[in-house]
Amino acid sequence: MLNEILSLAHGFFGLVFLMAFSGIIVWLKRADKKDINNIKTASIIMLAITLFLFITGVSAYAIYRAPGGAREYIKASDTPWVHTILMELKEFTGFYVLVLTFVLTYMVFYFKEQIIINNKLRKMMITLLIIIMIWTLITFAFGAYITKVKPI
């Protein structure tokens, strides 16, 4: 039961993360100084969710690694690469997203309106957001595939 709740919360907050990401991209593209408070709020939401997803992810990883768990099953199956490549990569890309989101949030609060006024800085923020999204999608996609092969 706890595992199902953990998986559900993990997926739900992943969706909220995507919504906050979309909001920041739109507000940065619109380049209106009035949107800075929305960007600050959305970046804090992204950071909090990434931290939450990392913590629940580590809890899920402990269940995955437990004796008789999904890891043993996958490694003994005819698709051990699901663990050796996908899971090994996913466990780190998830944390990398947390580090990058921390950088994003710090820059939003440090540069404030400058991230909207300064075109160079604005483009840098958009690039960082796109990179965060690519690494997030890698993490989500691998997670979904691993769960499809063997749920925790």
Partner: peptide, 9 residues
């Protein structure tokens, strides 16, 4: 680099 360094192959 960090992503490459955790890529098993």
């Amino acid at each position: 680099l960090a992503t490459l360094f955790v890529f098993t192959p």
